[in-house]
Design a protein around this nucleic acid. Structure first.
Length: 276
DNA sequence: GGCCAGGCTGAAG
DNA sequence: CTTCAGCCTGGC
């Protein structure tokens, strides 16, 4: 651990790690968490209140991780703005405070959420890990040897059998279509940064196996489109609890972040006997 | 063994 | 335009 830094805004590593938006975060015990994005690996631990020791230099923190953790935005302010508008949202924010929406790599996010359909979170992690294990570039760190998430170029050579062996099941042709299209630049995931939210969604949905839910997850977690609200079964249940009327329209550009507070509340807070 | 899990596709109404 | 069965696979 090279650096020590103080973070004043909401930042709870365990909540972030367990909130189901990322599938390659790992706990090393000792309250140290590992995050991976593109070719960067971070080990981070809260040593005392609001003080964190990190394995990267302050230069890398500022250049890579500050953006990844979305520190350009004050989550304390978001909570303050959203408070009092809707009782269910207040409950969810109380429970989930400390959560942040990560700005992950678009390609990894896209593939991860294609895989996610009809899977549990542990099963998603297993498949993503298997893909990295087979096709990802190895990286040595002070703690371990791990593999990066494979690029589309690296996956072009993968056979259907090899991908299926990663537990992709009927999603295998979906992932292969994403690999083909993205490796050939249609769509070009970098270019999509410039698109409006709606244009981004429709471009992503040209890929087989990408419907509106997966597209919105990619927009939110991979492109930082914080107004994007993916509606899955858990969020549908939350909307039912709100009398069948979606509360997310109240929150404008922050709706996707509010959605993440609610999602975390649904899977870990309410009815926690059902799904850890 | 049956059922369901962070959806999507294609076919039928 | 809307509804709905079926889908790989793992875990209870």
């Amino acid at each position: 651990m090279a650096e020590l830094l103080e973070i004043k805004d909401d930042f709870d590593l365990e909540k972030i790690a367990r909130s189901g938006q990322c599938f390659r975060v790992r706990n090393l015990g000792d309250e140290t968490w590992r995050f991976v994005t593109r070719e960067h690996v971070l080990y981070i631990k809260e040593t005392e209140n609001r003080r964190f020791s990190v394995s990267c230099t302050s230069e890398e923190w500022n250049r890579v991780w500050s953006r990844y953790f979305d520190f350009g935005r004050s989550y304390a302010e978001i909570v303050k703005r959203a408070a009092g508008l809707h009782p269910f949202i207040d409950e969810a924010m109380d429970f989930s405070r400390g959560l942040r929406v990560l700005r992950q790599d678009p390609w990894e996010t896209l593939v991860s959420f294609i895989i996610s359909q009809r899977k549990t979170i542990p099963a998603i992690m297993k498949s993503v890990e298997a893909m990295a294990g087979r096709y990802g570039t190895p990286v040595e760190t002070e703690y371990e040897t791990l593999r990066l998430f494979p690029s589309s170029e690296a996956l072009v050579l993968a056979s259907a059998e090899d991908l299926a062996a990663c537990g992709l099941g009927y999603r295998t042709p979906y992932v292969m279509d994403a690999v083909q299209k993205v490796a050939s630049g249609k769509p070009d995931l970098n270019e999509l940064e410039k698109n409006s939210d709606d244009e981004l969604l429709s471009a992503l949905m040209t890929i087989r196996g990408v419907g509106i839910k997966v597209a919105r997850c990619t927009a939110l977690f991979g492109y930082g489109r914080m107004a994007s609200v993916p509606i899955d079964v858990w969020i549908s249940r939350a909307i039912e609890e709100c009398g069948g009327e979606s509360p997310f329209g109240l929150f404008g550009e922050d709706a996707g972040i509010i959605q993440q507070y609610v999602f975390n509340y649904m899977i870990h807070g309410k009815d926690r006997n059902k799904a850890d």
